[in-house]
Design a protein around this nucleic acid. Structure first.
Lengths: 181, 181
DNA sequence: GGGCGATGTGTACGATCGTACGCAGAGTGG
DNA sequence: CCACTCTGCGTACGATCGTACACATCGCCC
């Protein structure tokens, strides 16, 4: 018998493996068996630690969204005034968010689930609320909302369009949205 | 034998059924059998008309994205000057695009596929190119690009956030982005 | 040391999947 | 009216899936 008992990180490892797998083959291609193999845990551990696929997905995307929005908040908290806040936003769009293919894919997988199931929409709600709050450190609430949407749109178009918007276009867009302040 | 021979719309019906099914259960939940049942065609027709699931998905999302971006172009072509073009954009964001849950889900499913597979990115590229072209009827290329991203972001946040941005917020955001013209 | 909860896992079952392929039946030229 | 072609479909196969559950093993208490 593989003496794997008492492995306190197992649950975490499963969640991480699940995220990696989703990034690679999509939610559509994830199965208990594949996750178990990748996390190097027996199949039985899946049903032991998680009631079902849904619970696993919710936990996985919860961890993911929290990690991304924490990074976002971190970036914004480093800004000291409106000017550096604008720079931070540009940096987030052009460098941070979807630097890795992995994050891009995971974000869209989450959005897709959220579009169909309210349970996942709680995650996106929390994510967006945190982003807005971080932006409101430097901008008024209405501007923060617009800016949040702009970040979303520019980020997606950067990722899914062959000709990505140039950096100065991003800078100019941020300037225009925050101009009225 | 069910005398179904010579049914020229069959291929189309399969594609439509596939889209309906994706909207309901996601790409993850789609199977040849379910599509066949929904389209009311025999299972054998699936492999006869489509080489595999990938081909079916590509055709389905091709039809979908073309239909959405045609609607977009239609809306924009009705505008006669910059002012009515702005109104059209606001209308698109607050009324058109994700009026139905169906379109919202399908869009995100497509984005998700595009994030992972280049074959689907051709579809999103064409879609975005057409949107930009439609916007360039009324705005300069750089503004069109920003506006396109803003539409994307506001639309998504409208759909995935509990507290959707109010209409006047949308109007104001569009005004700010197009202000420098 | 020995028994006993608690913890974790191997395995097997029924369902569902994609795909291939032999063949039925419609259309057509003689 | 026959025969031949070719379009289209029923069906079966092997793989893979989620899940349940009997059972092995560990830590602990007496």
């Amino acid at each position: 018998m593989t003496v794997r008992r008492h492995d306190p990180d197992r649950r975490d490892r499963i969640i991480d493996a699940c995220l990696d797998l989703i990034a690679e083959v999509g939610v559509a291609g994830v199965s208990h068996r594949k996750v178990a193999a990748l996390a190097d845990v027996p199949l039985g551990s899946m049903t032991y630690h998680f009631a079902g696929m849904d619970e696993l997905l919710r936990e996985a995307f919860g961890r993911f969204s929290r990690s991304v929005s924490d990074g976002f908040e971190q970036r914004m908290s480093e800004a000291t005034d409106v000017e550096t806040a604008r720079d931070a936003v540009v940096a987030i769009i052009t460098e941070d968010v979807f630097d890795t293919q992995r994050d891009l894919v995971l974000t869209h997988e989450l959005y897709t689930l959220a579009a169909r199931e309210p349970a996942f929409r709680e995650l996106t709600n929390a994510w967006m609320a945190q982003s807005r709050a971080a932006l409101e450190r430097h901008f008024d609430p209405v501007t923060a909302r617009m800016l949040d949407a702009l970040i979303e749109g520019l980020t997606i178009h950067r990722a899914l369009d062959t000709e990505a918007p140039r950096r100065e276009t991003v800078t100019e867009a941020v300037r225009r949205i925050t101009a009225g302040v």
